[in-house]
Each structure stands twice: as structure tokens, then as C-alpha cells.
Write a protein that binds this DNA or RNA. Structure first.
Length: 244
DNA sequence: ATTATTTGACCAACA
DNA sequence: TTGTTGGTCAAATAA
């Protein structure tokens, strides 16, 4: 099951990304709180670009990667290179969904139909969540292109229902790594945040990762505080993504 | 039977 | 103090 998300990988979204780019993407950071339920990871919920003491968080604007490529790193307990790596992959992930949503209707619709039938076999689930803010559209795409295995544990509408945020956790037992994928109503991934870092190396079986995307072994080292991606240059794990 | 996903509900932090 | 927003949990469902 968790492998089928690769389906998204076959799209080249290039034009899509620009459609809805919140001008405030930079400021659009989460300033909320970190529930204790998660323990340490919760603290990292600050995806803000502001350097705090929280775990490193990498946020990539999908529209950006293609055009602007904004990646924000927030200092935290986790971080380092692994995340940078992820951000690279992220870029790929980010780009794909666009096309599916915009162009590939057959597949997208098909998937949506299936999903919808799950909860509301009878109704098309057109009705938006009233207050909860749960995303109206659910897509089976899992941004696991970074080489890690993620499991989606939540989804919500944020920013006035303007964006849908999906919450992913690393499937590893002791791994606190989390990922937040923000998508516009159009289905375009507009932002991806990496919270905390993986306590384990990437699974070997990640064919999705291109050799170019693979980061040097040092990048994969969990304990490399030297990376401190706070500097403007460091923010971009891959300068390709961060043109800013 | 197992695993992953979806989504409503609850809780916490901030304005 | 209240309202809003965000994050996570847990139950239900599907593959």
C-alpha cells in the first residue's frame, strides 16, 4: 500500500506550480504550538523560517522549486543533512501532483472516486468540512520520494481553507521525523516542511531517488550540526531548488 | 489479518 | 476571556 504513491511521480509539472503562489509564502509559517502528545517532535511544529531552538524544519515551496524554490530551515533537534536531502527529493514530489490534478483527470478522478467511496460511498463527498477544516479532496499521493517511508496521520485545511496540509510521520519506530505537505485547493503542492530528522538511514529500497538527488554520505549522517542551514546559502540544500 | 489512509473530534497555543 | 487556527489522535474503511 504505501508504495503506490509513486504514481505521482510521473508528471512533470512545470506550469502548474506558479498558479497559486501565496505571496506570503515566506511569512506563512506556523506559529502555533506543539502539542505534547507527540513529545519532542511537537516542538518542531514551528515551521517558521525564524531561527528558533526547535528542530530543523525544511519548508519547500513547490511553486518555488520550479521557479523560486524557497526552502526554509528551522533549527531544531533534528536536522542536518538528512533534511537537506529530503528537500531535494521534495522538490520532485512537489512538482508532480500538479499535473495530475490539472491535467490527468482520468487517473486523478479515478483515485478520487475510490477514496471518496471509502467514507461516503453514497455521496460524492462534495461537502466541505464545516468547521474542522479537514481537506475536502483526498489524494492518495504520498510524498515519499525523499527516500523515506512516510505515513499520513492527518490532514487539515489551513490558511482559511486556502491550503490543505497533510501530516506525515516516518514509519520508522523510533524515528520522529515528520513531514507537512501543504497543497493549494488546486491540488498543487505549495509547501513542504520537514520536521525533525530521521533517526535512521534511508531505506535502501528507494528506487525513486536519483543518484543525483542522493546526498553524500556525510549528508546522511544524523549528527552533523555543522550544517547549520541558517545562513542564506545554507538554506538551500540543493541550490537548484533555492534560487532565492 | 495486516497495514495504510481518511477524516471527525479533541486539545493546545495564539490573537 | 473568547474565538480562531493548527496539530495530533483515534475510529472507520479500504486494499
Amino acid at each position: 500500500m504505501g508504495v503506490s504513491k509513486d504514481d505521482v511521480s510521473q508528471s512533470n509539472q512545470e506550469d502548474s506550480s506558479l498558479s497559486n503562489v501565496p505571496e506570503k509564502d515566506t511569512e506563512y509559517v506556523h506559529q502555533k504550538k506543539g502539542p505534547e502528545s507527540e513529545g519532542g517532535a511537537s516542538e518542531s511544529s514551528r515551521v517558521s523560517v525564524l531561527p528558533k531552538k526547535e528542530p530543523y524544519i525544511i519548508s519547500c515551496k513547490s511553486d518555488s522549486p520550479v521557479k523560486d524554490g524557497n526552502i526554509s530551515l528551522v533549527p531544531g533537534k533534528a536536522s542536518d543533512s538528512s533534511q537537506q536531502i529530503q528537500s531535494q527529493k521534495m522538490e520532485e514530489v512537489v512538482s508532480q501532483p500538479h499535473q495530475e490534478q490539472v491535467t490527468s483527470s482520468p487517473m486523478a478522478e479515478n483515485a478520487l472516486c475510490k477514496l471518496r467511496s471509502r467514507r461516503n460511498p453514497d455521496m460524492s463527498v462534495q461537502d466541505l468540512p464545516s468547521d474542522k477544516g479537514v481537506t475536502p479532496f483526498s489524494e492518495p499521493e504520498k510524498p515519499s520520494k525523499d527516500g523515506y517511508n512516510w505515513r499520513k496521520y492527518g490532514q487539515k485545511l489551513v490558511r482559511g481553507n486556502e491550503f490543505t496540509r497533510s501530516y506525515y510521520k516516518c514509519t520508522r519506530i523510533n524515528c520522529l521525523a515528520k513531514k507537512q505537505v501543504e497543497r493549494s485547493q488546486d491540488g498543487h503542492i505549495t509547501n513542504i516542511h520537514y520536521i525533525a530528522k530521521h533517526e535512521h538511514p534511508k531505506p535502501l529500497n528507494s528506487p525513486q531517488i536519483s543518484p543525483e538527488l542522493v546526498v553524500p554520505s556525510e549528508m546522511t549522517q544524523p549528527d552533523m550540526p555543522t550544517e547549520t542551514p541558517r545562513e542564506g546559502t545554507q538554506d538551500c540544500p540543493s541550490q537548484l531548488l533555492c534560487s532565492v
